[in-house]
């Protein structure tokens, strides 16, 4: 079922920033936090701002949880599970992995 798609080279994502990839018609925001070697993939759509912008948000450590702060209105979405810390909304999460310095996403 899990179908990983190669989206870019690891070095195409600046450390501590995100990019957006188009995977099976879905907009996926992929983050590369400086805090860890892991990557995170979540939906790119901001359900509060209603725009495809989350990949452009700041990676933010809130009480030990890695989140992305929406670039529009600054709500925090937890990268690991897609929950929102301020409002009763959530965003989808996707599997992502690094193989041979390539970034693979399943969506």
């Amino acid at each position: 079922m899990t179908n990983f798609v190669d989206v870019c080279a690891l070095n195409d994502i600046n450390k501590d920033t995100g990019v957006c990839a188009l995977v099976n018609g879905k907009q996926v925001a992929i983050f590369r936090p400086a805090a860890t070697d892991e990557l995170f993939a979540v939906g790119n759509f901001d359900p509060i701002g209603k725009a495809n912008v989350l990949s452009r948000g700041l990676i933010s450590d809130i009480k030990g949880q890695l989140t992305v702060a929406s670039p529009l209105y600054k709500q925090h979405y937890v990268l690991a599970d897609g929950s929102c810390l301020e409002e009763d909304v959530s965003i989808p999460t996707y599997s992502v992995k690094i193989e041979n310095d390539r970034v693979l996403v399943a969506a």
Binding site: N14, D16, T17, G49, A51, R56, L58, I59, P71
Partner: peptide, 21 residues
């Protein structure tokens, strides 16, 4: 490279983001 992750909404793309992105 060492500063890009620090830039907020507008600075990171050197433009002013509007409500639709």
């Amino acid at each position: 490279d060492k500063h890009i992750g620090l830039q907020d909404t507008n600075d990171i793309y050197l433009g002013n983001m509007q409500k639709d992105g």
